[in-house]
Design a protein around this nucleic acid. Structure first.
Lengths: 329, 329
DNA sequence: TTGCAACGATGAAACGTTTCATATTGACAG
DNA sequence: CTGTCAATATGAAACGTTTCATCGTTGCAA
């Protein structure tokens, strides 16, 4: 039998409510009784039962986190930041994977909501149909939008723009773009940003000869390798490629190595996200960094109602490493 | 105001207990009332409050998972499997990172236990001093031991043994071993297994010339690269190296590439774990696979009291890929 | 008719808290 | 001595369930 607040009260010869007030560090309790109760607590090894507490207060101090796949370094990083910050504030994190499957997502969100978390941080599946499920709940969406929910993420257009701008400034004129799944707004926006800078450039320099090729597919390593082969195994391959994820970029590196292209001498690559592996791969990957810690921070603040932002687009930043190089004119 | 079971009861004109029995799909309720109640539930959009339920039943259907770092692919994979299996059984996962810091670990375990999870799955920090904290709770330890708690993991000695055996069988006679932090039993055991096969071999072939060099450090990419440089930049470097983690192995690959060694022609490498990246890196990494899905399964079974194993060492398996090659005599 | 199973439904207790309206006390001013 | 006030402690209610002992009906056998 575990010891309850009632036992403490009896043992200390006080009322239950008094013990509660002692625990709450409330001022209105005499020094004498406070120490007596604290002794008894120590003695009996009493530890408050959170279930009773939760019921009474109608709160759980839980934060639900639903992501496509914890195995994806990007989401793992997100989870890490969310967990760190949440636990620093006394919250715990309920983790669930949706495996990019709408049905699984719905299921996961449903059971997580059933646990009455203080809030839900969600990276929705592309064709997510859980809009009404989460409507009315304290939900924040990260990375991908969901109608009616507040979104925090990077400015993807800007990210794509930065990548194009950088490659152009290096003198590259035969460009490739490796996009993510085009159902995802994230993927489309990055692409649009990339293209917009290109068009801008072409208008400024109408005479320049210019080429651009595009492919798209999943965000993962394997897709990067496949799409890379498509881009590289042809007559006049690009001299520089921007990708929609670091994982793609790393896959692309392999494809290039297979063909015998050396990076950055024969091919410049710029990734997206800046996952930990990006700075460890050889050559170190130039990439568009998503400020994940900041994203997590803002998402959490929104959940905890410290901010009332309804949408928050953060500035991505170009991280120059050694997978890119100027292209001689 | 959210709708409670009382509201449903009133609206359906029945007792609260009856509604409860309808929800429990108990047999002892007449068809007529069952449908009536179900209609009302539908109508009011009633959804049972788990807090009340938790208190009454004294159970949470939560599983605590405390790991060093979700960002580590190995633990991410573990977390994924645990989460999948747990949620398939109606449990949710509470995630916490210890960052390999004993103090943080203690803190995390404490708050997680405070939430009264049905069980705790723990990868303890090396100098963990939380033995008494978890003693008496339903805890299972994965990968690393904790006195008095049931452990499930791979047979690390066997893993090391397999690696050595394989490299010897390929004809390598100048071997290197890259170990993990020697405070960790895991790391020591792998090393011992490796060495034991070597000694065995030397006794069988006392005449053969033979060399073996050892270094150790952290499990991560960076350590792999550094240690790799130590092993490779010398007079007579090994022709084959076994590592204590795939991350180390991948770091080692980079070090080798830097030096201009080609894998597997100049150097064979065998990793440990078989993280997803192992089969994606070029060349694909030969490695000692940990059956993580099985580990997760068994840990969960132990937590859910379906098994009463007090220790469970699983058989690692050698996965042959293309980072290893026979060495000409 | 009586008795008695069998079945369904009821009401209340219990789970462990927190909080709020009271009650008790002592001190102190009038 | 009375009245007031502040300071503390008390007891009970409430949070939303589940369960268990109880009760009321029926139907049926004796």
């Amino acid at each position: 039998m575990t010891v309850t607040i009632k036992d403490v009260a009896k043992a200390a010869g006080v009322a239950v409510g008094t013990v509660s007030r002692v625990l709450a560090k409330n001022k209105t309790v005499s020094e004498e009784i406070r120490t007596r109760v604290e002794e008894v607590i120590q003695q009996l090894g009493y530890t408050p039962n959170s279930l009773g507490r939760n019921l009474r207060l109608n709160r759980t101090d839980l934060i639900g986190l639903v992501i496509p796949d914890i195995t994806n370094p990007f989401f793992a990083e997100l989870a890490k930041h969310v967990e760190m910050m949440a636990s620093a504030e006394g919250y715990s994190v309920l983790l669930a994977n949706s495996h990019d499957d709408p049905a699984a997502e719905q299921q996961q969100v449903q059971t997580l909501l059933g646990r009455l978390p203080s809030g839900l941080i969600l990276v929705p599946v592309s064709e997510s149909r859980i809009g009404d499920l989460v409507s009315g709940t304290n939900t924040v969406t990260v990375d991908r939008p969901l109608k009616g929910q507040t979104l925090v993420g990077v400015d993807n257009r800007r990210g794509g723009y930065l990548a194009a701008d950088y490659l152009l400034s290096l003198g590259h004129r035969r460009l490739g773009y490796m996009g993510g799944p085009q159902i995802l707004d994230v993927a489309r926006e990055r692409y649009e940003g990339f293209i917009s800078r290109i068009e801008e450039f072409q208008q400024q320099h109408p005479s320049r000869s210019f080429a651009i090729q595009t492919v798209d597919g999943n965000f993962d390593y394997r897709a990067g390798e496949e799409l890379g082969n498509r881009l590289l195994r042809q007559q006049h391959p690009p001299t520089a490629i921007a990708t929609a994820s670091d994982q793609q970029a790393i896959g692309l590196m392999r494809a290039a190595a297979d063909i015998g292209l050396s990076i950055p001498d024969d091919l410049s690559i710029v990734g997206f996200d800046d996952i930990p592996l990006a700075s460890l791969v050889l050559p170190r990957l130039t990439t568009i960094r998503q400020p994940l810690a900041e994203i997590a921070r803002i998402a959490l603040d929104a959940i905890l109602k410290r901010s009332s932002a309804t949408e928050c687009k953060l500035e991505p930043v170009l991280v120059e490493r050694s997978s890119t190089r100027a292209w001689p004119a």
